[in-house]
């Protein structure tokens, strides 16, 4: 650090820096205040119109409108699948799907959340299953009912090729099924829309687990390490290092070598 800067840091009121950061983040951490908003849109939450700031997601817009979520939201970042939402825009026939936490509001959006999908999840012990297409059909015989209408793909808020992975399952192509379905957040919209009543995301879950377990064996380096641990190879080193005082540890830490990139 240059010395002028050093003194700048010293003089700097550190608390003030923190306050400035907090002030800048206010909108994000405690909700939007109407006074700061310039652009507005009208959305229809289950049919009723609300004026909301145009910058918000469906989720934050609903909160702005006064909804306190106790369902239909989880991670708020597009991972958990809790906030599945269907919407149609004024004047359009297409029924669209999106995650409320990931979709910006648009003027004239009519929306409803689908926070729950009734679905069967059979029990199985992955260790006892055959790595074979019949396993999929055994637990999910309705797979055979796929008419390839592709409605599932249209409904997927992650833009996955859902029908393609279902078809890969029917063909017993576990690699394709697993890779194409990998980004699935199990929101349930595909299953809700499927005319053949398939629960795509559960099928994919079973397919991925079969693939993960059986496609290639456990890496040798891991198996070896487990054996070494069983044989007590690290006992002594751990006994020693756990008994070291702070100073010795600090020294060791400072001197440790980094693996070459």
């Amino acid at each position: 650090m240059a010395s002028s800067e050093e003194s700048a840091t010293k003089k700097l009121d550190l608390q003030k820096v923190m306050d400035r950061i907090a002030e800048a983040s206010k909108q994000v951490v405690s909700g939007v205040e109407a006074g700061t908003v310039e652009n507005w849109v009208t959305i229809y939450i289950m049919g009723r119109a609300y004026q909301v700031p145009a910058d918000l997601t469906i989720l934050t817009a609903m909160e702005y409108a006064g909804y306190k979520f106790v369902r239909g939201v989880g991670c708020r970042q597009g991972f958990c699948g809790a906030c599945a939402t269907l919407y149609r825009k004024e004047g359009e026939y297409k029924l669209q799907a999106g995650m409320a936490c990931q979709t910006r509001v648009e003027d004239g959006m009519y929306l409803v959340q689908i926070p729950f999908t009734p679905a069967e999840k059979p029990s199985y012990d992955i260790a006892e299953l055959d790595y074979d297409v019949n396993t999929l059909f055994e637990y999910y015989p309705e797979l055979a009912r796929c008419v390839s209408c592709n409605t599932c793909t249209k409904a997927c808020p992650q833009d996955l090729e859902v029908m393609d992975y279902v078809q890969a399952g029917i063909k017993g192509d576990f690699g394709d099924l697993a890779e194409e379905s990998f980004d699935c957040i199990q929101c349930g919209l595909c299953a809700i829309r499927c005319p053949s009543e398939i629960v795509q995301y559960n099928v994919a879950q079973l397919g991925r687990r079969l693939y993960g377990r059986y496609d290639s064996p456990e890496p040798e380096h891991l198996t070896n390490r487990l054996e070494e641990i069983d044989e007590g190879k690290f006992e002594q080193a751990l006994d020693e290092i756990t008994s070291l005082g702070r100073e010795e540890l600090e020294k060791m830490y400072a001197e440790r070598e980094r693996e070459q990139e």
Partner: peptide, 29 residues
């Protein structure tokens, strides 16, 4: 100590359950 000692077992467990842990061409993680 418990954390680092059980870590390899956890990877083993995940693999047994069928988690798709990234692997190299040669089968190593």
């Amino acid at each position: 100590r418990g954390l680092v000692e059980d870590a390899p077992f956890v990877m083993h467990w995940l693999h047994e359950l069928g988690a798709m842990i990234d692997k190299n061409e040669d089968g190593t993680f």
